[in-house]
Amino acid sequence: MGFHDISASVFADTIGVQRSGISHLLAGRNKPSLEFVLKVVAAFPDVDLYWLLYGEGVFSKKAKTAPPAETPIAKVVKSEVLEDPPSQAKTIDKIIIFYSDGSFKAYSEI
């Protein structure tokens, strides 16, 4: 709520739950249900689901500034064997690594 600068009552109205439910969660009397978590993620898509469920990682997807520390997922989008004439040898121009969070890193020789 502090990240988005909204009050508990505005937060409750935004995600579609009763204000007393938010009060009980903040006081520690209740734990959030799966339905509650899904409503938060639906109303605030920048909130990282993994952080919300496990308390690990970065709270906001927008706040991610460092490159992901996870292992990249290598995917072959299209693979083709091309027969090149000996006089037209091909060189690698660019390599792109796609991460599971949707980000990518491109490498090219300058």
Results as ranks from 00 to 15, higher is better:
residue 102 G to V: 01
residue 29 R to T: 06
residue 22 I to P: 08
residue 40 V to R: 05
residue 66 A to H: 10
residue 24 H to Q: 14
residue 40 V to P: 10
residue 84 D to Y: 14
residue 7 S to P: 06
residue 11 F to A: 02
residue 82 L to A: 10
residue 22 I to C: 05
residue 28 G to C: 02
residue 40 V to H: 04
residue 35 E to Y: 08
residue 16 G to F: 01
residue 63 A to L: 11
residue 22 I to W: 04
residue 13 D to A: 13
residue 69 A to N: 12
residue 62 K to H: 07
residue 50 Y to V: 13
residue 102 G to T: 02
residue 36 F to L: 08
residue 14 T to C: 06
residue 96 I to Q: 07
residue 54 Y to H: 15
residue 29 R to Q: 06
residue 101 D to T: 09
residue 55 G to D: 00
residue 23 S to R: 11
residue 81 V to H: 14
residue 85 P to C: 09
residue 59 F to M: 14
residue 54 Y to Q: 08
residue 89 A to Y: 04
residue 9 S to T: 15
residue 105 K to T: 08
residue 16 G to T: 01
residue 74 A to H: 11
residue 102 G to C: 03
residue 11 F to R: 05
residue 87 S to V: 12
residue 79 S to K: 12
residue 22 I to N: 04
residue 89 A to C: 08
residue 29 R to I: 08
residue 98 F to L: 12
residue 1 M to N: 06
residue 18 Q to H: 14
residue 89 A to S: 10
residue 95 I to H: 05
residue 51 W to N: 05
residue 60 S to M: 07
residue 24 H to V: 08
residue 78 K to I: 02
residue 10 V to M: 10
residue 2 G to E: 02
residue 54 Y to C: 12
residue 32 P to V: 01
residue 105 K to C: 04
residue 43 A to I: 02
residue 100 S to Y: 04
residue 6 I to K: 11
residue 77 V to Q: 07
residue 27 A to I: 04
residue 20 S to H: 09
residue 30 N to H: 12
residue 71 T to L: 12
residue 55 G to R: 12
residue 62 K to F: 01
residue 46 D to Y: 09
residue 55 G to M: 03
residue 68 P to H: 04
residue 107 Y to D: 00
residue 31 K to C: 04
residue 68 P to R: 07
residue 60 S to I: 01
residue 75 K to N: 03
residue 4 H to A: 07
residue 33 S to H: 04
residue 60 S to V: 01
residue 17 V to N: 05
residue 41 V to A: 08
residue 21 G to C: 09
residue 53 L to A: 08
residue 90 K to Q: 05
residue 40 V to E: 00
residue 96 I to M: 09
residue 5 D to W: 09
residue 29 R to K: 11
residue 103 S to L: 03
residue 13 D to E: 12
residue 68 P to F: 02
residue 6 I to L: 06
residue 3 F to R: 12
residue 99 Y to E: 00
residue 57 G to P: 07
residue 26 L to R: 13
residue 18 Q to M: 11
residue 13 D to T: 10
residue 45 P to E: 00
residue 23 S to A: 15
residue 60 S to K: 08
residue 100 S to C: 06
residue 15 I to E: 00
residue 71 T to G: 07
residue 103 S to T: 15
residue 105 K to G: 02
residue 19 R to E: 04
residue 74 A to Y: 10
residue 100 S to P: 07
